[in-house]
Design a protein around this nucleic acid. Structure first.
Length: 621
DNA sequence: TCCGAAAACTTTTTT
DNA sequence: AGTTTTCGGA
């Protein structure tokens, strides 16, 4: 059933702000939407997709392509559209990462790649480290070339290499790299940078494939557009210029903190010019309350003097300071007082430990070593999301497909009544066993199997108090039920032994950690997921997240060594950190670690951020 | 193997 | 800018 465009209403939210409505209804021309912190960027894209699908403005069999950078962003967007649209419409919303998009194209049209560059069907994916580049350059006697620069050069090459306009020496080196990757001992290994270049070449030399792409996707969404790299943008241009594709590019230049990794300098300006896009700036901040938004505006204006004032839509829900700089005498006092402050907040029932995030600019592992023991002294657990368990970061492990399959099973073993785990398990295994939603018999059989298994698992879990050895058995039992071979067939990222082993081992190690002194299995699993723990992460990792209270640890000029508020991305980093906070943002600083940097006084203090003696943040008791 | 100097590194995603 | 890793000479 289609809805008339003028009768369509946003779903699942009360209303959209006026600017969002305008940008949503603009479906005949590309739009560039500046969505600042808390503006509801993902929600806007989900609503626009819903609008296009439900009104038939994107009619069957046409599709919408949504490109994100991170998997969780792509999944999150897809899930929101699935919630709002009937299945046949939601299926026409293709939300994926940039790399997934290019790899799909390459795999589908591999035979159309010019022969000299055509990879074999069974190519693997390489994630080269700096060391790999060093080794390559050494092998080819080019230690004068820096790995970093070579990496960037390969990522920006235009194929074929001989026409790329490189000098002879550079051309030979790039050619050698390309040849090496195709002739690896265990078969060709392509990087995503290479896949990007191959697909750009493919589309440039095959107008029919490009035409097919244009016909399939009249609407393309680009999420976090400020982080687009030059190579990615070039691919977008090759793929979609000359057609009638209508783009919706969303992002915020003030949150551009990936320039050092190759993000474009002014993606929005180039995009506006190349695709004749109309610009919109969303003006609401649904995350933070008025006092925080006012301070955010002062920082924002320093980044971009022309920035419009944002309207705060978050409600103030705490007493006392909402933004402050905490000054401490030394590191010891700093750690101790922060720990005591969090303890007091939790005890007073204001927040849960996982509502208070500790953000750092870099070296989260070092800060963990410094803070974790002090927090532990107050009975608090610090969760450093960047820390590795085995060879995988906790944050990545929690987002793995492996975890999404195994964890609900363990929940069912730990707790008979776990409706969420039931749904999750049912959904995951339905996909794993290829049971269609219409196959009622299959569904029932699956449900019985899961019930039987959870009963068995519960028996194992009840054999003894949770401990390391039992945790190993429990995980192994769940994996047995899921069947490792089936799991690896269903998820291509687990094709290689090493990749699967890394995730499985990481899962096992984190379980063993969480088992220590746990009263029961529910507690073990809560810990596994970080419930009741204070999260610690870098600003970069915090992007896109929000927390009731944000404590930025280490506001000093040694941490911010490259800080120059009028250029570069340091101020953007600062802005990103500040805008994570829904209710309160605090910055800690102690003279022992370094001096407070100069613009603190000329920027933050006039903006209304108070300086408070760290000794006074917690009453003596 | 040890020492001091020099260079590298800090912030990250991706099937 | 501070810290860690690598390198070259003994």
């Amino acid at each position: 059933m289609l809805v008339l465009p003028e009768e369509w209403l946003p779903q699942g939210v009360d209303d959209l702000e006026q600017r969002a409505w305008e940008a949503l209804r603009e479906t005949g021309q590309s739009v560039c939407v500046t969505a600042g912190a808390g503006a509801g960027k993902t929600e806007f894209l989900a609503q626009k997709a819903t609008y296009l699908l439900q009104t038939g403005l994107c009619p069957q069999p046409k599709r919408i392509l949504a490109i994100s950078f991170k998997r969780d962003a792509a999944q999150n967007l897809a899930a929101r559209v699935r919630q709002r649209c009937p299945q046949d419409q939601a299926r026409r919303f293709h939300s994926m990462t940039f790399d997934a998009f290019t790899k799909h194209l390459l795999d589908h049209f591999r035979l159309a790649v010019p022969e000299a560059y055509r990879p074999p069907a069974d190519y693997g994916i390489a994630f080269p480290t700096r060391r790999d580049f060093d080794a390559f350059l050494q092998r080819h006697g080019r230690r004068d070339v820096s790995a970093d620069r070579f990496d960037k050069a390969v990522a920006r090459i235009t194929l074929p290499i001989e026409d790329a306009g490189l000098n002879l020496q550079a051309r030979d080196l790039v050619q050698a790299y390309w040849d090496d990757q195709y002739a690896m001992p265990n078969g060709a290994l392509l990087t995503f940078a290479m896949i990007n270049r191959l697909v750009e070449y493919l589309l440039r030399t095959n107008p029919r494939i490009k035409r097919g792409l244009l016909l399939t996707y009249p609407h393309v969404f680009l999420d976090e557009f400020q982080d687009t790299t030059y190579a990615q943008y070039e691919l977008v241009k090759t793929a979609f210029t000359g057609g009638n594709t209508v783009f919706t590019a969303v992002g915020d230049d003030k949150q551009k903190i990936m320039g050092w990794a190759g993000a474009m300098d002014n993606a929005f300006d180039e995009f506006t010019a190349d695709f004749n896009a109309v610009r919109y700036a969303l003006l609401c901040n649904w995350r933070s309350h008025e006092a925080l938004v006012a301070i955010q505006h002062v920082i924002a204006r320093r980044i971009d003097p022309d920035v419009e004032e944002v309207q705060a839509r978050g409600q103030l829900a705490v007493d006392g300071d909402t933004a402050a700089i905490w000054q401490f005498q030394d590191r010891q006092q700093e750690a101790a007082q922060i720990a005591r402050w969090i303890r007091a907040e939790v005890d007073q029932g204001h927040v849960e430990p996982h509502d208070i995030a500790i953000l750092v600019r870099m070296r989260a592992n070092n800060v963990e070593d410094e803070l974790a023991p002090v927090l532990a002294g107050e009975g608090l657990t610090l969760r450093n999301l960047a820390r590795n368990v085995g060879e995988i970061a906790i944050q990545d492990l929690l987002a793995e497909s492996f975890t999404e399959v195994i964890l609900p099973l363990l929940r069912l073993g730990a707790n008979v009544r776990a409706p969420e785990a039931w749904n999750a398990a049912q959904e995951r295994f339905q996909a794993l066993a290829c049971i269609s939603p219409e196959d009622e018999q299959g569904q029932e059989r699956l449900q019985r199997e899961i019930e039987d298994f959870s009963r068995q698992l519960r028996r194992t879990m009840n054999e003894a108090e949770p401990d390391g050895a039992l945790a190993d058995r429990v995980v192994a039992q769940a994996l047995d039920f899921a069947r490792a071979d089936r799991l690896r067939r269903a998820y291509p990222e687990y094709q290689r032994d090493a990749d699967f082993a890394r995730v499985r081992e990481g899962f096992r190690l984190l379980m063993r950690e969480c088992v220590a002194d746990a009263a029961n299995w529910t507690e073990v699993l809560d810990r596994f997921e970080g419930k009741g723990q204070v999260p610690l992460m870098t600003i970069h990792k915090s992007k896109g997240l929000e927390f009731h209270t944000m404590i930025f640890f280490g506001l000093d000029d040694r941490t911010w060594w490259s800080l120059d508020p009028d250029q570069g991305e340091e101020l953007n980093s600062f802005f990103v950190a500040f805008t994570r906070a829904m209710q309160r943002a605090f910055f800690s600083y102690c003279a022992e670690r370094g001096n407070a940097f100069a613009w603190l006084e000329e920027l933050l203090i006039p903006a209304g951020v108070q300086q408070i003696d760290g000794a006074e943040i917690v009453p003596d008791g």
